[in-house]
Nucleic acid binder design. Structure first.
Length: 526
DNA sequence: TAGGTCAGCGCC
DNA sequence: AAAGGGCGCTGACCTA
């Protein structure tokens, strides 16, 4: 059973309509309470057809969680892209307009970033639009490949996970974070000034140059180094490191700490951590490859230095699990080059032992360059050796690159489709698109694996009915916050979900997708 | 003052 | 040593 649901504006009516599996209405539109929605979930466990990610946020706020959904706007994005029109509007209004033969208008800003008042006056018959667009999507999905149906379901489930992770929040100890900042930067400056440690390093830089220099200004730094006989192309740290000058040491230390202070310092802490939780906004499918994006607080770029602040509540544990070398394993499965990923052990080390004289660094560089399109220096030579030894794997990514250079579309394993080519006026532009499509097929499929993993894991956790919560997801890594006595069961669930995800995508492939869960108190612990 | 782009760097 | 894919965020710098 499916039920289309419009949770409505805040304090407004909740409307729903029962649907057949193909999306045709199976009853009249009804106005209900959230309590009635919860009762329907309990009795029928239907697939709820919702307009967008934010609809579920409203339901969670009202205390309703559900098992399954179909996210109309996310699915529309997949279908529009599959048509070679990625980037076209795919909001509910635009989808409805296309269905009615009208020219779609640009999508409105996401509800999360819109003031409440603006949306309270929203569309008059949102529910009718949900029903109509969903029915059209079901027709398209039914006529297409099974992969897209799985992708639509997994992408939709992602919206549920994202909403629940936002609601749960990542456990974040402000006191630990503050202590860590104090240790590295000195005491918190009182009126927005520069921390003591940064002032001291700045002083050292100025002394080394014999004059005041603003280390935050690349142009000024390049001039300062020029005056002392070092011509720089940029002030990137790897370039600075090659220079022999007394300013370099304190400057590099300054840059590192200044970044910590600016991006994840006390200001970040005050803005993003409340009541012991960091609640980022996850944007499902926010990246063209299908990876998630995030907005607010930089959730997907939490530096290793502050991860100690992520700590389980007393009596609870963190279960942190990341997929080992996910992308090369995905390439092995995609291309049928199973010898590239013969077992669950360290793939780079195994490859190094077979091909690169035990040099793991070389093996890793070779594989990453193969997937990213790297050609320069040593990388080119290493990739050439891979091409001889693993022709099917290399032919797969080379084919994707050729398609991209020629302006064609490429698709992930389940069918996520890359954006159409813009003007490929120059050979350089064509090569750039080739590097993009070369990576798209691998990164996009890896994102699908992770999405299916999340969906499977979430389903397992709901069945177990414990209080364990998914609290973080970062491309190929998941974190759960669990009661200590449930940790072992959750570890088993994570392992099972990883195995299931591999089978759902690739059937009985011999390629392993090992996920190595660790039970810890702090995110910084190995 | 408000908005854009760029350089640089954090993450995968 | 340092170049190949995808992001978000910050301060500097420039323009309106």
């Amino acid at each position: 059973m499916r039920i289309a649901l419009d949770p409505g504006p805040r304090d407004g009516p909740v409307r729903l309509r029962r649907l057949a599996e193909d999306g045709t209405p199976a009853g009249p539109a009804e106005t209900v309470t959230f309590a009635e929605v919860a009762a329907l979930e309990l009795r029928h466990a239907p697939r709820w057809v919702l307009a967008r990610q934010h609809s579920y946020r409203r339901m969670l706020t009202a205390g309703v969680s559900v098992g399954r959904n179909h996210d109309v706007e996310l699915v529309e994005g997949l279908l529009v892209a599959a048509d070679g029109r990625a980037g076209d509007p795919h909001g509910l209004a635009a989808a409805g307009a296309r269905l009615a033969g009208r020219e779609p208008e640009p999508d409105p800003p996401s509800p999360a970033e819109t003031t409440v008042g603006l949306f309270d006056t929203g569309p008059t018959d949102e529910l009718a639009a949900i029903v109509a667009v969903h029915a059209a999507q079901q027709r398209t999905l039914a006529a297409g490949a099974a992969g897209m149906r799985l992708l639509a379901a997994a992408e939709s489930a992602g919206a549920l996970v994202a909403g629940e992770m936002h609601a749960a929040g990542l456990p974040w100890r402000a006191d630990v974070h503050d202590q860590l900042l104090t240790d590295l930067l000195g005491p918190r400056p009182t009126h927005g000034g520069r921390p003591a440690k940064l002032n001291a390093l700045l002083e050292e830089v100025n002394t080394a140059f014999g004059r005041p220099v603003n280390p935050d200004s690349p142009a000024e730094l390049i001039r300062a180094f020029g005056r002392v006989g070092h011509e720089l192309g940029s002030t990137r740290s790897w370039e600075l490191r090659r220079i022999d000058h007394p300013a370099v040491g304190p400057l590099l230390a300054y840059k590192e700490l200044a970044r910590l202070h600016a991006a994840h310092g006390w200001s970040w802490l005050r803005t993003w951590v409340h009541d012991g939780r960091f609640r980022p906004e996850y944007v499902v499918g926010g990246v063209v490859t299908g990876r998630w994006a995030s907005s607010g607080g930089g959730a997907l770029q939490i530096p290793k230095t502050v991860r100690a602040a992520v700590r389980a509540d007393p009596g609870w544990k963190l279960v942190v699990a990341d997929a080992a070398q996910l992308e090369p394993r995905v390439l092995a499965a995609l291309s049928g080059e199973h010898g590239l990923a013969p077992g669950p052990d360290d793939l780079y080390a195994a490859l190094a032992a077979r091909e690169f004289g035990g040099d793991r660094g070389k093996a890793k560089l070779a594989l990453l360059s193969a997937m990213y399109g790297g050609t320069s220096g040593e990388a080119g030579e290493l990739v050439a050796r891979l091409r001889l030894r693993y022709p099917a794997a290399m032919a797969f990514v080379d084919g994707a690159a050729r398609d991209g250079e020629a302006g064609r579309l490429v698709r992930s394993h389940l069918g996520r489709t890359c954006p159409p080519a813009g003007a490929l006026a120059t050979p350089a532009a064509a090569r750039a698109r080739g590097r993009f499509t070369r990576n798209f097929v691998v990164q996009g499929t890896a994102a699908e694996w992770a999405l299916v993993l999340l969906a499977e894991l979430r389903a397992a956790l709901r069945t177990a009915a414990g209080p364990a919560q998914l609290v973080f997801f970062q491309h190929d890594e998941v974190m759960l916050h669990v009661p200590a006595d449930a940790a072992d069961a959750v570890v088993a669930a994570v392992r099972a979900a990883a195995a299931t995800a591999g089978r759902r995508l690739f059937g009985d492939t011999p390629v392993h997708f090992p996920l190595t869960p660790r039970v810890v108190d702090g995110y910084d612990e190995r």
